[in-house]
Amino acid sequence: MHGPSRFFLATAVASSLVFAGCTTTRPAGTASGTSTFSSPRSSSIEAQVDASLSRLYDTVAGSRALVAGAQGVLVFPSVVGGSLGVGAEYGRGALRVKERTQAYYSTTAGSIGFQAGAQSKAVFYVFTSQEALDKFRQSQGWTVGADATVALARYGANGGIDTNTFRQPVVGFVLTNVGLEAGASLQGAKITEIRS
Protein backbone atom coordinates (compact mmCIF):
# COMPACT_ATOMS: atom_id res chain seq x y z
CA MET A 1 0.00 0.00 0.00
CA HIS A 2 1.52 3.28 -1.11
CA GLY A 3 1.11 6.98 -0.30
CA PRO A 4 -2.43 7.99 -1.41
CA SER A 5 -3.98 4.60 -0.57
CA ARG A 6 -2.43 4.55 2.88
CA PHE A 7 -3.53 8.16 3.49
CA PHE A 8 -7.09 7.41 2.37
CA LEU A 9 -7.33 4.31 4.59
CA ALA A 10 -6.00 6.22 7.59
CA THR A 11 -8.46 9.04 6.95
CA ALA A 12 -11.38 6.62 6.60
CA VAL A 13 -10.53 4.83 9.84
CA ALA A 14 -10.01 8.10 11.70
CA SER A 15 -13.34 9.41 10.41
CA SER A 16 -15.16 6.28 11.50
CA LEU A 17 -13.78 6.65 15.02
CA VAL A 18 -14.27 10.40 15.31
CA PHE A 19 -17.81 10.43 13.95
CA ALA A 20 -19.03 7.08 15.30
CA GLY A 21 -21.59 8.89 17.43
CA CYS A 22 -23.42 10.20 14.33
CA THR A 23 -25.88 7.48 13.36
CA THR A 24 -29.09 7.48 11.41
CA THR A 25 -30.55 4.75 13.59
CA ARG A 26 -30.36 4.18 17.32
CA PRO A 27 -28.70 0.81 18.02
CA ALA A 28 -30.51 -1.39 20.49
CA GLY A 29 -28.92 -2.29 23.78
CA THR A 30 -26.37 0.51 23.98
CA ALA A 31 -26.67 3.17 26.62
CA SER A 32 -24.74 5.79 24.68
CA GLY A 33 -26.61 5.26 21.42
CA THR A 34 -23.46 4.20 19.56
CA SER A 35 -22.06 0.85 18.57
CA THR A 36 -18.40 -0.12 18.75
CA PHE A 37 -18.78 -2.77 16.01
CA SER A 38 -16.25 -4.86 17.93
CA SER A 39 -17.60 -7.89 16.09
CA PRO A 40 -19.34 -7.53 12.76
CA ARG A 41 -21.52 -10.49 13.67
CA SER A 42 -22.84 -8.85 16.83
CA SER A 43 -26.52 -8.52 17.60
CA SER A 44 -26.01 -4.75 17.52
CA ILE A 45 -25.42 -4.57 13.78
CA GLU A 46 -28.39 -6.88 13.18
CA ALA A 47 -30.61 -4.58 15.24
CA GLN A 48 -29.34 -1.57 13.30
CA VAL A 49 -30.06 -3.27 9.97
CA ASP A 50 -33.60 -4.10 11.15
CA ALA A 51 -34.16 -0.51 12.30
CA SER A 52 -32.78 0.93 9.06
CA LEU A 53 -35.01 -1.27 6.91
CA SER A 54 -38.06 -0.30 8.98
CA ARG A 55 -37.19 3.36 8.55
CA LEU A 56 -36.78 2.90 4.79
CA TYR A 57 -40.20 1.25 4.56
CA ASP A 58 -41.80 4.05 6.58
CA THR A 59 -40.08 6.78 4.54
CA VAL A 60 -40.26 5.54 0.94
CA ALA A 61 -43.56 4.30 -0.45
CA GLY A 62 -43.05 1.09 -2.41
CA SER A 63 -39.66 0.25 -0.90
CA ARG A 64 -41.02 -2.69 1.10
CA ALA A 65 -42.39 -4.30 -2.07
CA LEU A 66 -39.14 -3.64 -3.92
CA VAL A 67 -37.03 -5.29 -1.19
CA ALA A 68 -39.50 -8.19 -0.77
CA GLY A 69 -39.31 -9.00 -4.48
CA ALA A 70 -35.53 -8.56 -4.71
CA GLN A 71 -32.87 -11.27 -4.69
CA GLY A 72 -31.06 -9.57 -1.83
CA VAL A 73 -30.47 -6.29 -0.02
CA LEU A 74 -27.22 -4.89 1.37
CA VAL A 75 -27.77 -2.49 4.26
CA PHE A 76 -25.22 -0.11 5.77
CA PRO A 77 -27.07 1.39 8.77
CA SER A 78 -24.52 4.10 9.50
CA VAL A 79 -22.00 5.33 6.95
CA VAL A 80 -20.17 8.14 8.68
CA GLY A 81 -17.69 10.64 7.38
CA GLY A 82 -16.31 14.10 7.52
CA SER A 83 -13.50 15.95 5.90
CA LEU A 84 -10.38 17.94 6.48
CA GLY A 85 -9.77 18.71 2.82
CA VAL A 86 -10.11 15.05 1.81
CA GLY A 87 -13.48 13.52 2.61
CA ALA A 88 -13.73 9.92 3.80
CA GLU A 89 -16.67 7.69 4.63
CA TYR A 90 -16.77 4.31 6.34
CA GLY A 91 -19.46 1.91 7.47
CA ARG A 92 -20.30 -1.71 8.12
CA GLY A 93 -23.38 -3.59 7.08
CA ALA A 94 -25.03 -6.88 6.26
CA LEU A 95 -26.25 -8.62 3.12
CA ARG A 96 -29.62 -10.26 3.53
CA VAL A 97 -31.17 -12.80 1.20
CA LYS A 98 -34.75 -13.83 1.95
CA GLU A 99 -34.51 -11.93 5.26
CA ARG A 100 -31.49 -13.93 6.44
CA THR A 101 -28.03 -12.43 6.86
CA GLN A 102 -25.52 -14.07 4.50
CA ALA A 103 -22.37 -12.01 5.06
CA TYR A 104 -21.02 -8.76 6.51
CA TYR A 105 -19.40 -5.99 4.49
CA SER A 106 -17.54 -2.73 4.89
CA THR A 107 -17.86 0.30 2.65
CA THR A 108 -15.38 3.09 2.07
CA ALA A 109 -15.55 6.15 -0.14
CA GLY A 110 -13.61 9.35 -0.50
CA SER A 111 -13.87 12.75 -2.11
CA ILE A 112 -11.64 15.74 -2.65
CA GLY A 113 -12.87 19.12 -1.48
CA PHE A 114 -14.21 20.75 1.65
CA GLN A 115 -17.30 19.32 3.32
CA ALA A 116 -18.47 21.10 6.43
CA GLY A 117 -19.03 18.95 9.51
CA ALA A 118 -19.72 15.27 10.05
CA GLN A 119 -22.22 13.45 7.88
CA SER A 120 -24.09 10.25 8.61
CA LYS A 121 -26.38 8.22 6.40
CA ALA A 122 -27.91 4.81 5.92
CA VAL A 123 -27.20 3.28 2.51
CA PHE A 124 -29.15 0.47 0.86
CA TYR A 125 -28.30 -1.58 -2.24
CA VAL A 126 -31.23 -3.63 -3.53
CA PHE A 127 -30.28 -6.44 -5.95
CA THR A 128 -33.29 -7.04 -8.14
CA SER A 129 -31.62 -9.62 -10.42
CA GLN A 130 -29.91 -12.86 -9.46
CA GLU A 131 -27.11 -12.12 -11.94
CA ALA A 132 -26.31 -8.80 -10.23
CA LEU A 133 -26.34 -10.43 -6.79
CA ASP A 134 -24.11 -13.31 -7.93
CA LYS A 135 -21.60 -10.93 -9.50
CA PHE A 136 -21.50 -8.91 -6.29
CA ARG A 137 -21.01 -11.97 -4.06
CA GLN A 138 -18.26 -13.41 -6.27
CA SER A 139 -16.27 -10.17 -6.34
CA GLN A 140 -13.16 -9.62 -4.26
CA GLY A 141 -14.04 -5.96 -3.82
CA TRP A 142 -16.98 -4.32 -5.55
CA THR A 143 -16.88 -0.68 -6.60
CA VAL A 144 -19.96 1.29 -7.59
CA GLY A 145 -19.52 2.59 -11.13
CA ALA A 146 -16.61 0.29 -11.99
CA ASP A 147 -18.10 -3.14 -11.24
CA ALA A 148 -21.77 -2.22 -11.45
CA THR A 149 -24.07 0.69 -12.06
CA VAL A 150 -26.33 1.50 -9.13
CA ALA A 151 -29.53 3.32 -10.10
CA LEU A 152 -30.83 5.64 -7.41
CA ALA A 153 -34.54 5.04 -6.91
CA ARG A 154 -36.81 7.36 -8.91
CA TYR A 155 -40.28 8.45 -7.88
CA GLY A 156 -43.50 8.86 -9.78
CA ALA A 157 -46.16 11.56 -9.49
CA ASN A 158 -47.89 9.62 -6.69
CA GLY A 159 -44.77 9.78 -4.51
CA GLY A 160 -44.10 6.04 -4.84
CA ILE A 161 -41.18 4.35 -6.56
CA ASP A 162 -41.30 4.68 -10.34
CA THR A 163 -41.94 1.38 -12.13
CA ASN A 164 -38.69 1.76 -14.11
CA THR A 165 -36.79 1.52 -10.81
CA PHE A 166 -38.03 -2.05 -10.37
CA ARG A 167 -36.34 -3.00 -13.66
CA GLN A 168 -32.83 -1.88 -12.64
CA PRO A 169 -30.40 -4.67 -11.58
CA VAL A 170 -29.17 -2.72 -8.53
CA VAL A 171 -31.15 0.07 -6.89
CA GLY A 172 -29.73 2.42 -4.26
CA PHE A 173 -31.31 4.45 -1.46
CA VAL A 174 -29.61 6.96 0.84
CA LEU A 175 -31.33 8.06 4.06
CA THR A 176 -30.05 10.85 6.29
CA ASN A 177 -31.40 12.00 9.64
CA VAL A 178 -33.88 14.25 7.82
CA GLY A 179 -35.11 11.68 5.30
CA LEU A 180 -34.36 10.43 1.80
CA GLU A 181 -31.40 12.21 0.22
CA ALA A 182 -32.31 13.39 -3.26
CA GLY A 183 -29.49 13.57 -5.79
CA ALA A 184 -27.12 11.47 -3.68
CA SER A 185 -24.16 9.86 -5.41
CA LEU A 186 -22.86 6.40 -4.56
CA GLN A 187 -20.26 6.51 -7.33
CA GLY A 188 -16.86 5.21 -6.25
CA ALA A 189 -18.02 3.49 -3.05
CA LYS A 190 -15.90 0.37 -2.50
CA ILE A 191 -17.54 -2.58 -0.77
CA THR A 192 -15.56 -5.48 0.66
CA GLU A 193 -16.67 -8.60 2.54
CA ILE A 194 -15.54 -8.78 6.15
CA ARG A 195 -14.04 -12.21 6.68
CA SER A 196 -13.43 -13.66 10.13
Rank of each mutant, 00 (worst) to 15 (best):
Y125H: 13
A103I: 04
S78F: 01
A151Y: 13
A122M: 04
T24E: 06
G85C: 03
S83R: 10
R96L: 15
S43R: 13
S63E: 02
V150E: 08
G87E: 13
T101L: 11
Q119D: 13
L133I: 02
G33V: 04
A109V: 12
A153F: 01
S63D: 00
G85L: 13
L133H: 07
V80P: 02
A122I: 03
A116D: 06
I45E: 11
Y57T: 01
N158K: 09
A28Q: 10
L133W: 02
A153W: 00
Q115W: 06
R137Y: 00
S42H: 04
L95A: 10
G21S: 14
R154P: 01
N158D: 15
S129C: 01
A88Y: 07
G145H: 06
S52E: 00
G81I: 06
D50P: 05
F76L: 09
G33M: 03
L95C: 09
A153V: 08
S39C: 07
D58C: 01
T30R: 13
F37Q: 08
S42A: 10
V73T: 11
L53N: 02
A65C: 01
T163W: 09
G141E: 07
D58G: 05
V49C: 07
V80C: 09
A151H: 15
F37C: 11
S78Y: 05
R26Y: 06
A157M: 09
R55V: 00
S32V: 09
A118I: 12
T25I: 14
Q115C: 01
V73M: 04
T59C: 02
S39N: 11
V73I: 10
I161N: 01
A157G: 08
R55S: 06
F37H: 14
G81F: 08
F19V: 10
T128R: 13
W142K: 00
R137L: 12
A68E: 12
L74N: 04
S39V: 07
F166T: 01
S32W: 12
G29W: 11
F136K: 01
F37L: 14
V49W: 07
A28N: 07
S129Q: 12
G91C: 06
G93V: 05
Q102M: 15
Y105R: 07
G87A: 15
K121T: 11
A65K: 07
A70R: 03
A132C: 01
G117R: 05
A88H: 08
V97A: 12
